[in-house]
Design a protein around this nucleic acid. Sequence first.
DNA 1: GTGGTCTAGACCACA
DNA 2: GTGGTCTAGACCACC
Lengths: 141, 141, 141, 141
Amino acid sequence: MLESINLQSNVAVFAQIENEVRFAIASGQLGAGDKLPTVRAVAEQLDINPNTVAKAYRDLEIMGLVYSRRGMGIFICDNVEAKCQSECYSEIIGKIHEVVAEAKAAGMRDTDVKRITKKCFASDTTPYETPPKAIMALLKK
Amino acid sequence: MLESINLQSNVAVFAQIENEVRFAIASGQLGAGDKLPTVRAVAEQLDINPNTVAKAYRDLEIMGLVYSRRGMGIFICDNVEAKCQSECYSEIIGKIHEVVAEAKAAGMRDTDVKRITKKCFASDTTPYETPPKAIMALLKK
Amino acid sequence: MLESINLQSNVAVFAQIENEVRFAIASGQLGAGDKLPTVRAVAEQLDINPNTVAKAYRDLEIMGLVYSRRGMGIFICDNVEAKCQSECYSEIIGKIHEVVAEAKAAGMRDTDVKRITKKCFASDTTPYETPPKAIMALLKK
Amino acid sequence: MLESINLQSNVAVFAQIENEVRFAIASGQLGAGDKLPTVRAVAEQLDINPNTVAKAYRDLEIMGLVYSRRGMGIFICDNVEAKCQSECYSEIIGKIHEVVAEAKAAGMRDTDVKRITKKCFASDTTPYETPPKAIMALLKK
DNA sequence: GTGGTCTAGACCACA
DNA sequence: GTGGTCTAGACCACC
């Protein structure tokens, strides 16, 4: 589930983890009662600081999406799919607004964006994937 | 030219300035040999520290988009429109990839994204407008 | 690694740091994933302001040679050795062109330049050593 | 004579002018009593501020290479060829030292530098000529 | 007046 | 403790 975390991305690692989980809930891959991988397991798998994972899980708990049972692990709450979906959606819509505005500013046309979007949907790109490296370098947060 | 800089945005001010210039070059508003507004002028107009502007201009120089002549000002390099366009475009395309991948991960459908994109293009949103930050709001409670 | 930085040089300190790193990558002393010394460590070692180091590191990031992970440090990007080598080389070649052209303009002969070059290679001069500034000296009288 | 001045170069314009004259004297293109082009003529030809030219000529006068006769113009002094040569030479030797040291730091070998130098001597590059633009951008003073 | 460089120090986000 | 960003202000080189 965490195969698309990118340590070189400008997006903070903890935020990437949070999003992964939220998107997984929104799309039904994770459902009520499902157990998240342990903090230690994730930290080892991604070779990151356990605190980073812990922070992500804590944030998710604050958002009311997961709950922890001491000694048992961390589990998805009931009835969060809808809430998570609407949150994710409004967030994504916000991002679309932003990128479309930039596209307009750079002189792109409606049809260009449509064409690209279509192609993206067909392909299997993952979020946080580094786009062509040269661009990543230029792209500052 | 700098009317869409947003001091409250999450995007760093210097990065906004860089993008403004790059998009202006990409869309033909700024051409080879054109002089950028002086560091001090921009700083006064936006009421920010001159160093912030200088940093943006310096980055643009490292990127090879502008060159500076001491005592004269800062000017757009020759033959950068195409380069800048392709850079801006690939950057935006990268972002589209990212957001579309997120949308897919969250279970959105092709048609949803298309519909939103269309609406965005019709409206007049500017980049850097803070997108809905439902989660941030939650976290701060 | 930073033993040849010269605070008295005409070359800006931050530029010297950038070059040190770039040459270190080009010559294989620094490889993909290696961690650069921290901003603060370098600043203390050289007794300069941390911002000066930060600027150098940031420039390197814009050039696509390093990436930063907040709280972790700054690391060499993958696959930059070749790029860096060719860049360093073409840069140096450019400088050689320049100095040879000047030598020709001043009436030097092929053999003169060869002889000097040979001697330089044998000696252990470091870059950024202030070259004889006969004219500067004259001007200040 | 001033066809190789490059306004985009990092080298200050006034310094380029000074060097042009000094190298021309060293190589015998300009001799005792020869008249320099007027400040206004140079300024118009290069599209630069007359003050810049005036500063270059003033510096040359301070160095004792030229003298001005009010209303007549500026002329090369007697017996400066040898002096100018030795100055130019030591300056160029300093630069060779610098670039060779950088070449060594970047892992170049003796033979590489020799080969390049030879090729440069054969070609007709002029000083201050912009090397490949991308490099120029990276190359900070 | 222009930009270039550096310092000192603040505050923030992240690990 | 790590880097990121911004401010304030200094001094210099050039035009």
